[in-house]
Simulated assay, not measured.
Amino acid sequence: MSKPLFLAAIAALALAGCSQKNDNDDDFASRVGANGQAAPAAPVETTAVVGPPPVGTDVRTLDQLGNISGVDLGQRDGACTFTSDGTETLIAAALSNPASTGRAVVRVDGKLYQLASSGGLPAIRQGTRFSGEGITVDVAGNDQSAILTVTDTAGQVRTIGGKWICA
């Protein structure tokens, strides 16, 4: 085989390999809400609300985060994500300084809500309390076994098992 023909064959194989879709791409896309299905009837919020959810909203039922491209998690040295059955329901970030405030976001009834925590990234990594108007979320545990507890203003609680993954 001549050198130019050999190089052309290698290039064709490389392009074919690059164009193949990885199963992990589909898995990730479905977890973050971009799995190619039809868009929901209502527009999906991509920025977080700082304020209480509407009256009658069950804040204990967290939705999949999905597109959070418009959320401002502030300056950060790292972040943690809570997942349950492969679905991300909370992301939090902060600076490493324990005096800094952390920011988190959850999606409830299709809207993103901004939450805050104290203790900076060290507290977030250990699991901490995140609070916003009408929503309190506690995370305890680590990457292999974590519990997320959501409490509404009436004191009603929902507990969800999952993983707390930090980077």
Results as ranks from 00 to 15, higher is better:
Asp26Gly: 15
Gly36Ile: 04
Asp138His: 09
Leu90Cys: 08
Thr149Tyr: 09
Leu148Ala: 06
Leu115Cys: 13
Ala140Leu: 13
Gly110Ser: 01
Gly141His: 02
Cys18Thr: 09
Arg129Lys: 15
Pro98Cys: 07
Leu115Ser: 04
Pro43Glu: 07
Thr47His: 06
Gln114Asn: 08
Lys21Asn: 07
Leu115Asn: 12
Phe82Asp: 03
Arg76Val: 03
Ala104Pro: 11
Ala116Trp: 15
Leu15Tyr: 04
Thr151Val: 04
Arg60Gly: 15
Gly134Ala: 07
Phe6Ala: 05
Val105Asp: 06
Val55Thr: 10
Gly119Asn: 08
Ala99Leu: 13
Pro53His: 02
Ile135Gln: 02
Thr89Tyr: 15
Ala12Gly: 06
Thr57Lys: 05
Gly132Trp: 05
Ala94Tyr: 14
Thr128Trp: 10
Leu5Gly: 01
Pro52Cys: 03
Ile91Lys: 13
Ala92Lys: 04
Asp85His: 10
Ser145Cys: 04
Arg125Asp: 07
Glu45Ile: 05
Thr46Lys: 09
Ala48Pro: 00
Thr57Tyr: 01
Pro43His: 04
Thr89Pro: 00
Ala8Arg: 09
Gly56Asp: 07
Ser84Asn: 01
Gln126Gly: 06
Gly33Ile: 11
Thr57Gln: 06
Cys18Pro: 00
Ala140Val: 08
Asp109Met: 14
Ala93Ile: 11
Cys18Val: 12
Asp23Leu: 15
Thr128Cys: 13
Pro54Cys: 05
Val137Asn: 03
Arg76Ile: 05
Val157Gln: 12
Cys166Ser: 00
Gly17Asn: 10
Leu73Met: 10
Asp109Tyr: 05
Gly56Met: 14
Asp23Cys: 08
Thr101Asp: 07
Val55Tyr: 14
Ala104Ile: 13
Gln75Asn: 15
Arg107Asp: 06
Ile124Trp: 00
Leu112Tyr: 11
Gly119Glu: 01
Ala154His: 00
Gly70Cys: 07
Phe130Tyr: 14
Ser2Ala: 09
Met1Pro: 00
Asp63His: 07
Pro54Asp: 10
Pro4Val: 00
Ile165Met: 12
Gln64Val: 15
Ala14Leu: 11
Gly36Met: 08
Gly132His: 01
Asp109Asn: 14
Asn24Tyr: 13
Gln126Asp: 14
Phe28Val: 14
Ser100Glu: 05
